[in-house]
């Protein structure tokens, strides 16, 4: 048995140490918002946070996530009203929506960091930060705009 803390809740799961966190989260804890896209750390669909850092859960063994705080898309807000979610909604970002949990989880720390510094990230910063997250539907222009809007909202709100 391993204990994992996901979205501020402890879960006891029966998983081998090397099981990727992705499958533990999805199959054993039923947080299905985190998606599978490649299984090799190439697409970002499976992005979650460990202690606030975005990581690719498909290549992170559960053993590495013990004694840490794991946050998934379900932990961002209860009602879908976090500034980042609102920015995504206002920009009508998703097409199929499948990559968007990973996009949001990957973008969140960039937004928070930028807001702390009171600046909106530049196109180049966003490109660099988001290069590991594929959206096959091609929502990149809107993701970019949503990241900027969310940062502005966070700065104003803070």
């Amino acid at each position: 048995m391993i204990t994992l803390n996901v979205n501020n809740q402890d879960h006891q799961i029966d998983a081998p140490d090397e099981m990727p966190l992705l499958w533990a989260i999805r199959d054993l804890m039923q947080y299905t918002g985190t998606k599978f896209g490649c299984g090799k750390g190439l697409c970002g669909a499976c992005t979650v946070h460990i202690n606030g850092q975005p990581i690719r859960s498909c290549i992170t063994p559960v053993a590495l996530a013990k004694n840490s705080k794991i946050k998934t898309i379900e932990g961002v807000s209860d009602k879908g009203d976090h500034v980042i979610q609102i920015a995504w909604q206002e920009n009508n970002v998703p097409q199929c929506g499948y990559c968007q949990s990973g996009q949001i989880m990957n973008a969140l720390p960039l937004i928070e960091r930028s807001a702390e510094k009171n600046t909106t990230p530049t196109d180049e910063e966003i490109d660099n930060h988001m290069a590991g997250n594929i959206c096959r539907c091609g929502t990149y222009p809107r993701i970019k705009q949503a990241i900027k809007d969310a940062t502005v909202a966070l700065i104003k709100g803070a």
Binding site: T32, T72, I73, G80, P94, Q100
Partner: peptide
């Protein structure tokens, strides 16, 4: 499905 898509739902 917009909102659900931003919530992983």
């Amino acid at each position: 499905d917009l909102k659900e898509m931003t919530m992983g739902k």
